[in-house]
């Protein structure tokens, strides 16, 4: 019994039979005019589109799981469910602890606001406290190597600088869960090494990581287990080596 309790505490992420289905109009019209025309002709038909179905897994602290699969396999939907943005239509998704979503870093940044303002805004979006963030802004800018630019609008930054600032902000506070979508290639070689070191450090400190990637080499290198999604279903789930081999052979 004691051991079971321990396991329950360890599982940071627990998905049980998670699925997401949505109703779409058969011909996916994006216009009210079309919809009206079809309604008049009695041709409005709905179909159920299964984006994800029957996904179950558990993830413990300090573990890295990778999700692979072709475009449209349901990887993004799964990430959205894990991030808590999308409530699953079937099953249960439980994530214990704070989540740092490192998905398309910089989505919340605004080109007209200064570097500092963006750091503050992005941090508050992630649920941090204004007061605490304000004392961290300088350090974040320094780590990203953009100290001189922090008071200028973000539109004057190069794209590499934006990515570095976003990465530095997202990883500034320790989170229990990291959701990573193809961001291991941020900035130049030197910064990649630096960001990789910080990721390793976060994992070592007990963060659970879900990694979505098309780069099978980094999947092999980073993750212990891998989920292979195909058309919304789990095609294979297990040790990374075996799953990636099977995926490459398919």
């Amino acid at each position: 019994m004691a051991k079971n309790d321990g396991d329950a505490l360890m599982a940071v992420i627990k998905l049980e039979n998670v699925g997401f289905t949505y109703r779409v109009l058969l011909n996916r019209t994006g216009s009210l005019k079309e919809l009206f025309k079809e309604a008049v002709h009695g041709r409005v038909r709905m179909i159920d589109y299964v984006a994800l179905s029957g996904v179950s897994f558990e993830l413990n602290a300090g573990e890295v799981v990778a999700i692979i699969g072709r475009n449209g396999a349901g990887k993004s939907t799964l990430l959205k469910i894990l991030a808590g943005v999308l409530p699953p239509t079937e099953g249960k998704s439980v994530v214990n602890g704070s989540i740092a979503p490192m998905i398309e870093l910089g989505a919340g940044l605004h080109p007209e606001m200064t570097g500092s303002e963006n750091v503050l805004f992005y941090s508050v979006l992630m649920g941090r406290k204004t007061k605490k963030v304000k004392s961290r802004i300088a350090a974040i800018g320094e780590w990203a190597g953009v100290t001189d630019h922090m008071d200028f609008p973000l539109r004057t930054f190069s794209s590499g600088m934006v990515a570095r600032l976003a990465f530095a902000t997202a990883t500034d506070e320790k989170a229990e869960v990291l959701l990573v979508d193809e961001i291991l290639s941020v900035g130049d070689a030197e910064f990649q090494k630096k960001s990789r070191a910080r990721m390793d450090q976060l994992i070592a400190s007990g963060a659970a990581v879900v990694l979505v990637s098309h780069d099978l080499n980094s999947v092999r290198e980073l993750s212990t287990r891998t989920i292979w999604l195909e058309a919304g279903h789990v095609k294979m789930f297990g040790e990374t080596g075996a799953v990636v081999d099977a995926y490459e052979a398919s």
Partner: peptide, 11 residues
């Protein structure tokens, strides 16, 4: 307009 954020961070 803020869809980019709303699909990634829970707010």
């Amino acid at each position: 307009g803020n869809g980019g954020v709303l699909t990634k961070i829970y707010i």
